[in-house]
């Protein structure tokens, strides 16, 4: 099933979110930096997907930074997805992001996979 690519780009803000639907899940490629200024945009873009109940994979390979406000949104996305019968997987976080997750013990709550999701849409 093909869904139109939803892209959100703001030249001023260092964040880009790309959503690609695949056969069994939806892959969201998050690139740039997540902080108090950019995180609301992530919620805006991904929140509805989480509510859809489809399994959700966040490809974090191009996310160079994430702060505590981003962690909050990740927890919210996780809870939303679960509440809707779906799931959330964080894929290929970079060291800074992984450290933020580990230090806050969120790696116990969230599903984290080291490998990047296959980029080909199904």
């Amino acid at each position: 099933m093909w869904m139109p690519e939803e892209a959100w780009v703001d030249e001023a803000l260092p964040l880009q979110v790309d959503v690609r639907d695949r056969a069994s899940d939806t892959v969201v490629v998050v690139s740039g930096e997540l902080d108090f200024a950019t995180t609301p945009h992530l919620w805006e873009a991904v929140g509805p997907l989480a509510r859809s109940g489809r399994p959700l994979v966040l490809d974090l390979a191009a996310l160079s930074f994430c702060d505590s406000s981003a962690l909050s949104i990740l927890v919210r996305l996780h809870r939303t997805a679960q509440g809707s019968g779906g799931s959330l997987v964080l894929a290929a976080p970079q060291p800074q992001v992984e450290a933020a997750l580990t230090v806050t013990m969120l790696h116990r709550l969230l599903t984290i996979r080291p490998e990047q999701p296959d980029g080909d849409p199904v």
Partner: peptide, 16 residues
Amino acid sequence: TLDEEGGRGLYLVNAL
């Protein structure tokens, strides 16, 4: 608590 959303800012600072 683990699944609470907010309040992790200084927790991060303290830990790091």
